[in-house]
Design a protein around this nucleic acid. Structure first.
Ligand code: SF4
Ligand code: SF4
Lengths: 132, 132
DNA sequence: CTATAATAGACTCATAAAGTCTTTAATGGG
DNA sequence: CCCATTAAAGACTTTATGAGTCTATTATAG
């Protein structure tokens, strides 16, 4: 079980945006060079981030993506969910009522994971890899 | 991101073994009926569990699978790892040295998940679904 | 011996991730 | 108003992995 490559791209793109001047939108062209991934593919991922409300986009000349104002609130979990979706780690075939402990254990474990990821904000990484 | 169906089967098979008489091996035929999955496919998964050292197998007449003696020590994590492998949740493309915080955060989050799953033993579920 | 049961490996099938190509819509600047 | 620029959308292809089948082989109790 692994997060998709797309999540990797999204995390790095977000990191880049957080470290950029919030008044100068950065386009997918520049980002795709930094991440060495095609523009069209990356743009799809960026659109997901926009729809999830994590970043802001503007079309046209000098357009591009900007991080949302409340960047302090953007967590790793937000980004991962935007890309991976919110499907549960475990869905059983039968669902024998609500007393099932197998389900319970795995769900609780997932909760642990998400709680941690929600507590880590992307903005905490400001300064990292800024020079690149 | 989801655990595979195979993990679901393995958890249920282990649950069944834990609730069975440890001196009477249960064959893949019976198990496959309980889990409504083909014998050949399930047998592959069982072999993985054997190789991971979680259960014991015996060929020939009256053969089958038995849980290991130290069943108190068998955790959810053991079972999941036996099936899903031990690959990390996140492997970055470049690996910019060991100071990377993106990697660190996701690794730590995974640690949280695994720690929880390791603390939950399959034997704690004894009695559940015994009647089926 | 032989019936029974696990193991192994090659194989197929289905689904999802990863990526491409092309078209359309939005928008700032001249 | 026009045009260069840039995001968004959708159909499509490719690749990888999960899920499952089929057949042959090995082990063993009776
Ligand atoms: S035992 Fe639990 S996980 Fe398994 S099928 Fe029943 S409800 Fe689902
Ligand atoms: S920033 Fe971290 S996760 Fe990203 S490529 Fe560098 S080392 Fe890997």
């Amino acid at each position: 079980m692994k997060y998709s490559q797309a999540t990797d791209y999204a995390l790095h793109a977000m990191l880049y945006l957080v470290n950029s001047d919030p008044d100068k939108p950065v386009g997918v062209q520049l980002l795709s060079e930094k991440l060495t991934v095609s523009q069209t593919y990356l743009s799809k991922l960026m659109t997901k981030l926009v729809k999830a409300g994590l970043i802001h986009s503007s079309s046209g000349a000098n357009g591009g993506y900007r991080i949302k104002r409340n960047q302090q609130d953007i967590s790793f979990l937000d980004i991962i969910r935007a890309i991976e979706g919110t499907a549960s780690l475990f869905e059983c075939s039968f669902n024998h009522g609500n007393g099932c402990q197998i389900q319970q254990v795995v769900m609780d474990a997932e909760q642990q994971l998400e709680q941690y990821l929600a507590s880590k904000k992307i903005a905490d990484l400001v300064g990292m890899h800024k020079a690149e």
